[in-house]
Computed example of a mutant assay.
Amino acid sequence: MLRWAPGWDCSHDSVLFDARSGDYWLLSSDGRTVIEWLLAQPAIAREELLGRLAATTAEGEELLGNLAAAGLLTGVIDGMPAHLPPGLDSDQ
């Protein structure tokens, strides 16, 4: 169960907490946007995410890679969620 910390007046960054494990992540505004998209639409193609991100950042590939490495993104294999291994080439 993911929860957002209250926002800060001095920063556009956000803190996201996992209420079950106690883990937390500091996310950029673009990172928060991706997580919010995925909370609203859990299954979305990587290319669609990159297309949406293109309007706000040229670093979309890196951002998705960082979110995957942090364990915040999963892939789908045969219809089942699968964690993406760190360093996975985005074309695989």
Rank of each mutant, 00 (worst) to 15 (best):
L2F: 11
R3Q: 03
R3L: 08
R3E: 07
R3C: 01
G7W: 00
D9S: 13
D9E: 14
H12A: 11
H12M: 01
D13Y: 06
S14M: 00
S14Q: 08
F17E: 03
R20S: 10
S21C: 07
S21V: 06
G22H: 11
L27V: 11
S28L: 05
S28Q: 05
D30H: 15
D30R: 11
G31K: 03
G31A: 08
T33E: 05
T33H: 13
I35M: 12
L38V: 03
L38Q: 11
L38A: 10
L39Q: 10
P42Q: 01
A43N: 01
I44T: 15
I44Y: 12
E47H: 07
E47V: 04
E47N: 01
E48T: 09
E48M: 04
L50A: 01
L50R: 08
L50N: 00
L50T: 03
R52T: 06
R52M: 06
L53S: 10
T56V: 07
T56W: 11
T57E: 07
T57A: 09
T57D: 04
A58F: 06
E59F: 14
G60L: 07
L63Q: 15
L64R: 10
G65V: 10
N66A: 14
N66F: 09
L67P: 08
A70N: 12
A70E: 15
A70T: 10
G71N: 09
L72A: 11
L73C: 14
T74P: 00
T74Q: 12
G75F: 01
D78T: 00
D78S: 03
G79L: 02
M80T: 03
H83N: 08
L84W: 13
L88A: 08
S90C: 09
Q92V: 06
Q92F: 13
Q92D: 08
